[in-house]
């Protein structure tokens, strides 16, 4: 297990290195550079050269890449192109916390509910209620986040006035102090995630219910409840959890869109923001952090599988 962990983490490091080069090059291909974009219309050849020297942009790209990556490893991502007073690390730190709050809340709500409903419906396969709910789940999965979000804003904010329509806050205020701004973003993320988990759990429960060992359990004369809890659930939920964990990427795309819809101060919002303002250093680092979080979530998924599966655990 330890060896497996070390191998996997090393592989992630190699992967992230490749990803960081890819991100750096994609941005390096942009016309002009951060200095030109900062100066915009007021740029003169002299002022441009000065700023480039000041920002170290006159040096060759591979040196700048190494500096950037070196800084990143020390936790220093440099400063925003908008102002030398804005430390990228501290901005990203806060945004990452906010995004994590959103993602973790959605997971905490959607996973248990989705699994429970999947088991309940899966044990009633091919009944009316199963057909109705699994079709409902499919429809829910299909709804784009920006559509459910807009409908939610329309109903809960515009029509009923219960919740603020966006998460914009006064400077100095934090999300924790304004939990009401969290409700709609969380509900939006949770919706699709819940439906997805429910569908997966249902499919796996149905498959396991048809297995020979569940037949063995039934023909032992055990009550249905015991059969479900002891024989169906452990075997059906293991692959379900694996599939969910392997698809955390699902969350990332959704988060970027939802954060922008609700003007929520998270990583996705910052990513689009830095594109709109062409804040190159910020864009680079935001993209890199998102990719890193993504890679480590996938590792966590693999570990979950390993820990839950006796075959892997014991070999």
């Amino acid at each position: 297990m330890a060896r497996f962990l070390i191998v996997r983490i090393s592989l992630i490091m190699v992967t992230l290195l490749a990803v960081s080069i890819a991100i750096f090059s994609l941005i390096e291909l942009l016309p002009g550079d951060a200095a030109a974009l900062m100066l915009g219309q007021q740029s003169t050849p002299d002022s441009l050269r000065n700023l480039q020297e000041q920002m170290g942009l006159d040096r060759p790209p591979h040196i700048r890449y190494l500096e950037w990556i070196g800084g990143a490893l020390r936790g220093d991502l440099g400063v925003s192109a908008k102002s030398p007073d804005i430390s990228i690390s501290s901005v990203i730190g806060e945004r990452l916390r906010n995004s994590a709050l959103l993602a973790v809340s959605a997971f905490v709500i959607a996973v248990p509910l989705g699994l429970a409903m999947g088991v309940w419906v899966g044990s009633r396969a091919d009944t009316k209620i199963d057909r109705f709910l699994s079709m409902g789940g499919l429809v829910t999965i299909s709804l784009p986040e920006f559509v459910t979000g807009v409908v939610m804003i329309l109903v809960l904010s515009t029509m009923l006035g219960w919740l603020p329509s966006s998460s914009i806050m006064m400077p100095g205020e934090s999300i924790i102090g304004n939990p009401q701004v969290l409700i709609m973003p969380i509900l939006t993320v949770t919706g699709a995630l819940f439906a997805y988990i429910f569908r997966m759990a249902r499919a796996n429960v149905i498959e396991v219910m048809e297995s020979n060992y569940v037949r063995t359990a039934v023909l032992k004369g055990l009550p249905m409840r015991t059969v479900m809890v002891r024989h169906v659930m452990p075997n059906a939920l293991l692959p379900t959890i694996t599939v969910i964990a392997n698809n955390v990427g699902w969350l990332f795309g959704g988060l970027i869109i939802i954060e922008n819809l609700f003007a929520y101060p998270g990583m996705g919002g910052e990513l689009i923001n830095s594109i709109k303002t062409q804040d190159i250093p910020m864009l680079q680092s935001t993209a890199m952090v998102i990719a890193a979080v993504y890679a480590f979530s996938n590792l966590a998924a693999d570990l979950t599988y390993g820990l839950l599966n006796p075959r892997v655990r014991l070999s």
Partner: peptide
């Protein structure tokens, strides 16, 4: 092999 619960 398929008649025994693999995780018990």
């Amino acid at each position: 092999v398929t008649s025994l619960n693999p995780s018990m």
